[in-house]
Nucleic acid binder design. Structure first.
Length: 490
RNA sequence: GGUCUCGUGGCCGAGCGGUCAGGCAGUGGUCUGCAAAACCAUCUACAGCGGUUCGAAUCCGCUCGAGACCUCCA
């Protein structure tokens, strides 16, 4: 545990020793979802990645303020209805108030996050609740000379900014390339340059999500909310900003530009980006229409799914890959994850059954050090999990009395596994492992198993097997071992 | 087209200069009235071709292949 936490910083493209701005405090901002549809597997990735970051910092004793926004003023859509607000469009189609749609999908998102055991952020601000802050920020940018008004909208002058600063310091992009490559879109004639981005957009008459501003009735630009809310709750400069790799450009690059002008300093010390989840090698996403929603995973209702996958299977599957790598979805991989996690959980619950010895044949502290080293190396959860699986061998061998562990070893192991599996990785044992808390069920099961045990003692296999088969039809599985019979729900 | 990333055993996925990744599957055992499960052990790798080095999956070059971003996107 003496090795210090290293974080890969997208700004420098290398791992850096993490140093908080304020000792023992962490400011963490992560771009949350746009609530105009159900969350899909891709949304689970940043949520779980930064949930683990959040949990690990808390475990290390930091006081963390974790801000994850809800984008509810919409973004522009690129299909037939260019310039129309996504949320407004959905609302009109379904004849609902925009905020009704927002509420509906926000609730469903929260429900998914609870299922995945993703902790609630400290603050979950909504863009629509921070229009005033965003307008104030636009004013600052205009006053500084980096924003210009055109046709009732306000745009950020990227070219001017780039002369004084560096538009591209995060993404590695160069403005000359942008000039050549940015696609011309309808309605861009208002802008000085195609790559200038909107700070405020004037609403068209049919646009129903709108707010008054000094420039027009309209809505804030796509990148502004994160800058405004990050600044409001975490300060002009804060420690970590996270999000999906696909947000790096232009979203995060533009955040840096806006905040740098409005506040006179770069907003973020460490930028962290999680990689994408792919399906058949292609990014799973809204635009490709190849996404599978989390609810579909949980019930198994999607053509691509062979079965339902529990929230913890999804969580474990994601954590088995490093957050900066792509992970490819497949039924086979998820089933592997499901089986592996089940074995992990079974062994952890077996810890309490180990008989202590006077001497020790296993170095628990070495395992502990390795676990911390893995997490300290840019949150390397796959390595952590590998070490924890290694430790399983010791646990299981001790359970079979093949190696010796002291009382202290067992306690340390128990604490270690609970800390890393449950507290830091945020996994939950879904199996129940026979310890369901319904007293009546326990009573009945013990009663039935007692009868069956008598039958078995009398070698009355017909009765014994009938009980087992009958219970199996109700999803209750009996397992006979030399210590006796245990039961669990399938 | 521009910028960048990646190609690891049957599958998934770490490692990024020298020592075991790990999981799932497979195989061989143990246990068991049978079944299921569990446990132990264990075999296959580093896209191709050159180069640097005492030594390369790991560094460099080229070739082939895949993907991401450049437009909303986690």
């Amino acid at each position: 545990m003496d090795k210090q936490l290293q974080i890969y910083n997208t700004l420098t493209r290398k791992k850096e020793l993490f140093k908080p701005l304020n000792p023992n405090h962490l400011g963490l901002y992560v771009c949350g979802p746009t609530v105009y549809g159900d969350g899909h597997l891709g949304h689970a990735r940043p949520a779980i990645t930064f949930d683990v970051v959040y949990r690990y910092f808390e475990h290390l004793g930091y006081k963390v303020r974790y801000v994850r926004n809800i984008t509810d003023v919409g973004h522009l859509e690129n299909d037939a209805d260019e310039g129309e607000d996504k949320i407004a469009k959905k609302a009109r189609l379904e004849e609902l108030e925009p905020m009704e749609v927002v509420q509906y999908f926000t609730d469903r998102y929260h429900n998914n996050m609870d299922q995945l055991n993703v902790k609630k952020p400290s603050i979950e601000p909504r863009a629509s609740g921070h229009i005033i802050e965003q307008i104030e920020m636009i004013k600052k940018i205009i006053d500084a000379g980096y924003g210009y008004i055109s046709g009732g909208s306000v745009y950020f002058d990227v070219e001017k900014y780039n002369k004084d600063y560096n538009y591209g310091k995060l993404s590695g992009r160069k403005i000359e390339e942008l000039i050549q490559n940015t696609r011309e879109l309808a309605g861009q004639t208002e802008k000085k340059q195609s790559f200038d981005f909107a700070l405020w957009k004037k609403a068209s008459p049919e646009h129903i999500m709108r707010w008054p501003s000094p420039w027009s009735d309209g809505f804030p630009g796509w990148h502004l909310e994160c800058s405004a809310m990050g600044c409001k709750y975490l300060g002009e400069e804060f420690d970590i900003h996270g999000g999906g790799l696909d947000l790096m450009f232009p979203h995060h690059e533009s955040e840096i530009a806006q905040s740098t002008i409005a506040n006179g300093k770069a907003p973020v010390r460490y930028w962290m980006h999680n990689n994408m989840i792919t399906i058949n090698g292609k990014k799973m996403g809204k635009s490709l229409g190849n996404f599978i929603t989390l609810n579909e995973f949980f019930v198994g209702e999607h053509d691509a799914l062979e079965q339902a996958y529990s929230p913890m299977t999804i969580r474990f599957f994601i954590l088995q890959a490093h957050y900066r790598s792509t992970v490819d979805f497949s039924n086979e991989a998820l089933q592997s994850a499901e089986r592996g996690m089940k074995r992990l959980m079974t062994s952890i619950s077996a810890l309490k059954d180990i008989k202590a010895s006077d001497s020790s044949e296993y170095n628990v502290n070495e395992l502990k050090d390795k676990c911390y080293a893995a997490m300290n190396d840019d949150f390397n959860t796959p390595i952590l999990i590998a070490h924890l699986f290694d430790g399983l061998k010791a646990i299981n061998s001790a359970k079979e009395s093949k190696i010796k562990l002291t009382k202290e070893d067992i306690n340390t192991l128990s604490e270690l596994y609970h800390t890393f599996i449950f507290d830091i990785l945020g996994l939950v044992d879904e199996s129940g492992n026979g310890n369901d808390n319904d007293e009546l069920v326990d009573y009945l099961m013990n009663f039935i198993m007692d009868i069956r045990m008598n039958a078995r003692t009398n070698k009355d296999w017909a009765t014994s097997d009938k009980i087992r088969d009958e219970l199996a039809t109700k999803g209750i599985v009996l397992k006979d071992s030399k210590e006796g019979t245990s039961w669990s729900f399938e």
